[in-house]
Design a protein around this nucleic acid. Structure first.
Lengths: 189, 189
DNA sequence: TATTGTTATACTCTATAACTATA
DNA sequence: TATAGTTATAGAGTATAACAATA
């Protein structure tokens, strides 16, 4: 069990990591803000899905997701087809233009990270990824995705079948401090 | 050297960590948004300093710092005394009320983190702190503070003299991809 | 002329709440 | 009644640019 001083330092680091995120956001195309990039990235990684799934993955409210999705749809990067199984739902999927944009995004962020983290070892990057994944999981992130198994393993993209429609298994976690932790991404109406 | 897939995963984790930050922000008092909390935390940790130093530590533009500082000053948590050495500057320092608020903030965040990270070991938390610190440093964060020495050690508060006015040693780093990386926290006018 | 700090403006991201269409 | 998604509104955070006072 860690001490108070450590927790305060961790809180400080979390607060300060915003500068890194903004640096990463600055290299995005002008018509593709970070929210749009996140939508494209998740659709590219996990394949077609419904709004509610995407909201879960983005870890933001459905209303926020709706805005981001509308933005990328306006630019023709995704399409929203009706869900035959539920007429209230829409299935989101990347268009070829969206795939192209995604590739551009990937190229840009990889270029920047290659520059910035040139002196990091493979293991160090991996460790940071693992710890951040675990951090999110520890925060009761029921939106943390386990595409294959709902075990305690960190979220990974579907390795061999990245285009399969995701079925998110909610991580079973009993919140203690925040008993009203939202189990959905929805604002109670 | 890490691979592209790792960098993309890291970018994804950075994007997703926002949910953790928002969780942490939700427990703040209603009149103390995250920006104010950051100001108080840094003043408490590094002691009295000028606006420009604080902007450096916050890793945001001076104009943003000015707003945050105005907010906490309005609530009587800090005071802005004139700098005898430079009449343009103001020295920021916590008031007793600010110290009290800071203690409250510390208690709240510690409580939440103790809950959420109850099953983390001391070493794991430490490792995450180290990696995040290094991440910020790698991003040319010339605002990363090394109160004592400007070596490659992670930023730590001044251990024995937390109230000493900080003198930030700029991390010497030659940006390559972004040659116009701001060496100041200032928007070019 | 350059620097410190403030203010005005605009943009992004977010949550809350109210609404519709469907289940 | 409950759920999926949309939209309107408000709040926080940020950057840019223009400004005043001082160096």
């Amino acid at each position: 069990m860690a001490e108070q001083a450590q927790f305060e330092e961790l809180a400080r680091q979390l607060s300060a990591v915003g500068a890194v995120k903004r640096d990463l956001a600055r290299i995005l195309p002008h018509d593709c803000p970070a929210g749009s990039a996140a939508v494209l990235t998740l659709l590219g990684r996990y394949g077609s899905m419904r709004m509610s799934k995407l909201a879960e993955l983005l870890a933001v409210d459905m209303s926020v997701t709706s805005r981001h999705v509308a933005h990328v749809a306006e630019r023709g990067w995704i399409e929203r087809s009706p869900d035959p199984a539920d007429k209230r739902s829409r299935i989101l999927h990347l268009t070829p233009a969206g795939e192209a944009t995604l590739q551009d995004l990937s190229r840009r962020s990889t270029e920047l990270l290659t520059e910035r983290l040139g002196d990091w070892s493979d293991e160090e990057v991996d460790q940071l990824i693992r710890l951040m994944t675990r951090l999110r999981a520890s925060f009761g992130d029921c939106r943390t995705v386990h595409p294959r198994l709902s075990g305690s393993a960190p979220a990974e993209p579907v390795p061999g079948n990245p285009k399969a429609t995701v079925t998110v298994a909610s991580a079973a976690r009993a919140p203690t401090i925040a008993p009203v932790l939202e189990q959905t991404t929805r604002t109670p109406a």
